[in-house]
Simulated assay, not measured.
Amino acid sequence: MSRDLIEKLTHSRGRLVEGLNLSCDIKKSADEGGCGVVGFCCTEPVAGRHIYEPSRQMHNRGNGKGGGIAAVGFDPGQLGVSRKTLDDYYMLHIALLDAKVRTEVEKRFIKVNFEIAASGKLDTVKNWQSVDGLHVRPPDVWRYFVRAKDNVLDKFIAENNLQQLDRRDAEDEFVNQNSFRLNQEYYASLGEQKAFVLSHGRNIMILKVVGYAEAIVKYYKIENLRAHVWIAHQRYPTKGRVWHPGGAHPFAGIDMALVHNGDFANYHSVSEYLRQRNIYSQFLTDTEVSALLFDLLSRTYRYPLEYIIEAMAPTTERDFDCLDEEKQKIYRAIQASHIHGSPDGPWFFIIARNIARQNMFQLL
C-alpha cells in the first residue's frame, strides 16, 4: 500500500475518535498469569467437540475468569446460508450483556449500514447453571451476515479520500470502524457494559464466557459445528472482579482471531505506538493490543507474514548474525521502524486467519 493511502487510512481513524472521551491514561484492566492456549488446523472440517477435550485438559491454566474459542472455515449448510454468502459476507457476532439493547444496536449500527443476508441468535442450553465451568450467565450472541450498503460505503470512501483504495479493502475498514463505534457506545464508555462485538470477519466466529473455554462448546451447543481451524484460551487474570467476558481471549481483527499466553513488560509503549496511528484499545488487555498490532501490520502496512513476525518478534544476537547481508539489511530497517511497538515478553501467540482472497485458512 502506498504511503499516501496509509496516511489517509490513519487519518480516517483519527476522525473516528474525534470528540470521544478517550482517557489519556494507558492501563490494563487486569494482570494475567500463565494462561492456556491451544489450536489446530485441518484440511477437512472438524467438529467442535474436538476442541472440548484439549480445552478441558488446560483447565489448570485458567481460573474461571475468562474462556474463549474461535473457529474459521465453516460448512455453509450448518449455518443456513449459501457458500457465496459464507465466503463474501462478514459474520458479525455481537455479545449482548443486556438483551434489551438489541433493537437499539441493530437500528443504530447494523440495519442502517448493512445489507443483511441472514441473522439469528445462537442456540444455547436452557439453563446455564447446568453447564460445568460457567461462573456467570454467558451473553446472548447474535450473528449477522452483512455487507456494507453501497451508498454507505460510497460516503465512507468519499469522506475519507479513499478512492484509490480497493473497494473491498475500504469495506474491511468500514466494518472495523463500525465495530469500534459500537464498542465505544455500548461497552468502553459505559460504567455498566451492555454489548460488544465479538468478531466481524468473513467465515470466522469468536465466542467468550466468564468461566472455562470448554463450557462454550456445551453452552452454545457447538459440539457438531464443523470448521477447519479451532483455537481456544483459558484465561488467568490475577486481579480484579470479572463479571463479563469482554477481556477474555480470543481478540479479533478483520478475518483473524488471536490468543495469547504471557505478559507484556512494555504494554504502555505498544499502546502509545498504536495511538500514534490513531488506534485505541477498548478492552485494556495485552491480547487486544496484540491483535490490533497484527491487524495494523497486515491490513494497513500490507507486510508479508515474514515481516510481520520480524516487526513483532525481532531477530537478535547470534540469530541475526547468521542471516545473510541482504536479510540483515531488511530486518534492521523493520526493527528501526517498529522496535518501540514490538511486544516485550515473555509471550506466545496463536492466530487463526481466513485469507479470503487466497481461499485459504491459516493457523500461526
Rank of each mutant, 00 (worst) to 15 (best):
N113A: 00
P139I: 06
L207R: 02
T103V: 03
A213G: 06
Q164Y: 05
L182F: 12
V101P: 00
D132A: 14
S179M: 15
R226F: 05
F174R: 05
I157K: 00
K239L: 12
D98A: 10
D172I: 12
A232P: 01
V125A: 04
K149W: 01
Q177D: 15
F180K: 14
E171F: 08
G240I: 07
N113E: 01
R167N: 05
I110N: 00
S189Y: 10
Y187M: 15
E159T: 00
Q164K: 01
N161A: 03
F180S: 11
A232H: 03
E223K: 10
Y219V: 12
D123Q: 06
K107Q: 00
I231Y: 11
D150Q: 02
H200Q: 08
I216K: 02
V229I: 15
V105I: 07
K218F: 11
W142E: 06
N224D: 12
E192R: 15
W230E: 14
V229N: 07
Y220R: 07
I231W: 15
S189M: 09
N160S: 01
E214A: 01
G211D: 09
V112R: 02
A188Q: 15
E173C: 13
F114Q: 00
R137D: 09
A117D: 05
N161I: 02
K194H: 11
A213D: 10
I206G: 06
K126P: 11
R137C: 10
V105E: 03
D140L: 08
D123N: 06
A188K: 10
I204M: 10
E171L: 09
D123Y: 08
E185D: 13
V209F: 04
A148V: 07
I157T: 01
P139N: 05
L190V: 13
E173G: 04
S199W: 08
H135E: 11
V242P: 03
F196L: 10
S119M: 08
F180N: 08
Y220L: 14
R181K: 14
K111I: 06
V105P: 00
V146Y: 05
H228V: 10
R167W: 05
V146I: 06
K121F: 12
E192C: 11
R102H: 04
I231D: 10
R137T: 11
Y187R: 08
D169E: 13
V105M: 04
I206F: 04
F196A: 04
V217D: 06
N224L: 10
E185S: 13
I222G: 02
Y186V: 14
K126E: 15
D166F: 00
Y236K: 04
E104P: 01
F180V: 14
F156R: 03
H200Y: 13
W230V: 09
D98G: 06
F180M: 13
D150P: 01
A118K: 09
A213Q: 09
V209A: 11
Y144W: 07
E185K: 14
F196Q: 07
Y187Q: 10
I222A: 07
G201Q: 10
G191F: 14
S179C: 15
V217Q: 09
I231F: 11
A170Q: 09
E214D: 06
G240M: 07
L225Y: 03
F114H: 04
E214V: 03
K194R: 15
